[in-house]
Design a protein around this nucleic acid. Structure first.
Lengths: 248, 248
DNA sequence: CGAAAGCTTGACACCGATCAAGTCAGGTGG
DNA sequence: CCACCTGACTTGATCGGTGTCAAGCTTTCG
């Protein structure tokens, strides 16, 4: 009776899987599809590749949004800061995701790399010009924004209603799904985020994340390979936990 | 040094103050501004006024998004449901706000009235037609969506990092600001939401909301007038609490 | 006036934060 | 190649904030 779309990954925040190329050499899919060769050429020429070290900021909250970025390689996280200095991670981003697009003049949140990363950046005014010539592009970004909104709303639910265990399980499942959408196979996933990063995203302390992962390990739900790789050994149970079915 | 935009109301979720008329007779501001008289006329004719009782659903999560609504009178709340039945309020809406717009085919969340309410509803396909003729409208909705996203992200921060007291204070301040943007004057505000509604929005139980309001009352920050009206007697302190400055 | 719904308050339990040691892994320099 | 050093992680003990359960009270409305 409850009208749900169970297929949408809950508590996503793990990338909008836009499948957008933004003219980074490859004209593949998504955003660029409606563009003709000339426009694509223009765009590719206006585009600039940048390499970043781990933990390097791409842009900060409040800065003028002069560029739009596509993450082509590596992992990044988005953070939002409060007046009193507290901050939270609001999402993670993976290759193919767009970063820093906003209709406003300033970035509403900051982005920084977790790993070494490569981004492809385009001047905002070039994008605006493209919008004018291809209004359909704007629709694309609207869809992207709406999907993002739905994911953020799910995250609100998770933070408001989930226990630490449920949040951690949901995080692991989301992470796995995000990587699988990008072609990853097998049960072992790299986290790239520290326990502190994960805690900041889930509204928990790093100790609680660590304890919860340990509990999962003892129950045979996961195995840890070094510090930054997880193997999901009992994905069923994790999914059950993540959707609040309490079992294990 | 921290780049913040303190002016944006945090934890908004209390209406996107779109200032949009959607042709409900009045052609006032916002959305309709770029429209010529003919288009406005078309739209007004396609529009339908609906009256709703308190606690009546406007649409449910998962239903086909056949219409877009403007709330012209009353208060509504938006809720998102999880597979296991848990649900959370993700926002409240006030007169002037748009409800139920999504680029997708189905509603990502449900909406229901809290009070008696009037909405003005427009068929989705009419809106799409309007988009085609006036691409600038799409930009308008993109901005709306982005603002919504920023508000939801702030709510994520609030749920992840705020204590019960801070959340309640932030809620009261946001409520007051939302009503003031709509012309309300004076320190007394009507809630229209029960303690349970507020708790569902803030990720708290109704008992905790009640206790916190009582504590505010005892500290002289608020006065309660009946069950559904609050007077903010020490707004300064509430603002301080809401921004995490811990004082009272 | 009576009933129902909503609110308040209390007692208690429990989850997760905090504080505090340790341990482990990975990188650097000897 | 090993020793060390540092940052990240784990684990334990304790505390406090919220949830839960349970009365009772107040407001609202028929």
């Amino acid at each position: 009776m409850t009208p749900l779309d169970d297929t949408r990954s809950r508590m996503d925040g793990l990338g909008s899987e836009a499948g957008i190329c933004m003219a980074c050499g490859s004209r593949s899919v998504g955003l660029c599809a409606p563009l003709d060769a000339t426009a694509l050429g223009d765009m590719a020429r206006a585009t600039e590749r940048i390499h970043l070290a781990p933990r390097e900021p791409l842009f900060r909250q409040g800065e003028p949004a002069t560029h739009v970025y596509t993450l082509t390689d590596g992992t990044a996280r988005l953070t939002r800061v409060l007046a009193d200095g507290r901050q939270a991670a609001i999402g993670f981003r993976f290759p193919g995701d767009i970063l820093g697009f906003t209709p406003g003049a300033e970035h509403a949140f900051g982005a920084e790399t977790l790993t070494e990363a490569t981004v492809c950046r385009l001047e905002r005014k070039r994008l605006d010009a493209l919008f004018r010539r291809h209004p359909v592009l704007e629709r694309r970004f609207l869809e992207l924004c709406a999907r993002e909104l739905a994911a953020t709303q799910d995250h609100v639910l998770a933070l408001g209603r989930f226990t630490a265990e449920e949040r951690c399980a949901a995080f692991l499942i989301s992470l796995a799904e995000a990587q699988e959408r990008r072609g990853h196979t097998g049960p072992v996933f790299r986290l790239h985020a520290t326990r502190a990063d994960i805690g900041e995203f889930l509204g928990l302390t790093l100790e609680t994340v660590s304890r919860t992962f340990s509990a999962f390990r003892k129950r045979g739900l996961i195995r840890l390979h070094g510090q930054s790789a997880v193997e999901l050994t009992d994905r069923e149970s994790l999914v059950a936990l993540a959707s609040g079915e309490g079992g294990a």
